[in-house]
């Protein structure tokens, strides 16, 4: 009976069916499915890793590796547990973290600081995230940082962020508030321009 009610007129059910079919094809490493996955998620994955990395070329390389690893491990993907985008974001988070660790091991601390400071020295590579804001982000917990990344750098809705973080929407809203408050405290000053709010 329920199957009858949830017909093709239900956009949410249709979307779930499409996602499930795409996931099934992805596990079978169907090139068309992976092409579609790339088109759907490239921007989000790139934006997600860009925050942690020093330049656009590095972000492009890491984001590309995300898709390559996902394809190579396609047979391990279980759609029932997590949506494709969440899976890609998980790979992206680990790769970006490993990349930063490599820099820590490779060079002096200053190199890491420069890597994480988007505001200098190369304006062409900067994504205009203020250095003090980056440091404020680093003062957050992992979950708080992730919620701000997804909400404002990747431009995900609360609902999408909840799915990607496997939390309830209320929990995401709560995390979001605490993250912004913690960032304000870390910044320890009112030195920001007034936003659009009036």
């Amino acid at each position: 009976m329920r199957d009858t009610e949830v017909g093709t007129d239900d956009p949410a059910a249709e979307s779930r069916n499409e996602s499930a079919e795409l996931a099934r094809l992805a596990v079978a490493r169907d090139p068309g499915a992976w092409s579609r996955i790339f088109d759907l998620h490239w921007s989000a994955v790139y934006r997600f890793v860009r925050y942690r990395l020093s330049g656009s070329a590095e972000a492009e390389d890491i984001a590309s590796q995300v898709f390559e690893i996902a394809y190579a491990r396609a047979d391990r993907f279980d759609y029932r547990g997590v949506p494709i985008e969440g899976w890609l974001m998980g790979i992206a988070r680990n790769l970006a973290r490993d990349q930063v660790k490599k820099l820590v091991r490779r060079g002096p601390e200053q190199e890491l600081l420069e890597t994480m400071d988007f505001a200098e020295p190369d304006e062409a590579d900067s994504i205009d995230l203020r250095g003090d804001l980056v440091q404020a982000m680093d003062a957050l917990t992992g979950d708080q940082r992730q919620v701000l990344q997804l909400r404002f750098l990747v431009d995900k809705s609360v609902a999408d962020t909840a799915v990607l973080m496997d939390r309830s929407e209320d929990a995401v809203k709560n995390l979001q508030r605490r993250a912004l408050a913690a960032m304000q405290r870390a910044l320890a000053g009112p030195g920001y321009p007034v936003g659009r709010a009036g």
Partner: peptide
């Protein structure tokens, strides 16, 4: 809080353009 998100949003838009 909204003021702090302004810089994040700007960075997000730049990253989207790069993407």
């Amino acid at each position: 809080m909204l003021a702090a998100t302004g810089s994040l949003r700007t960075a997000g838009e730049t990253a989207a353009s790069e993407a």
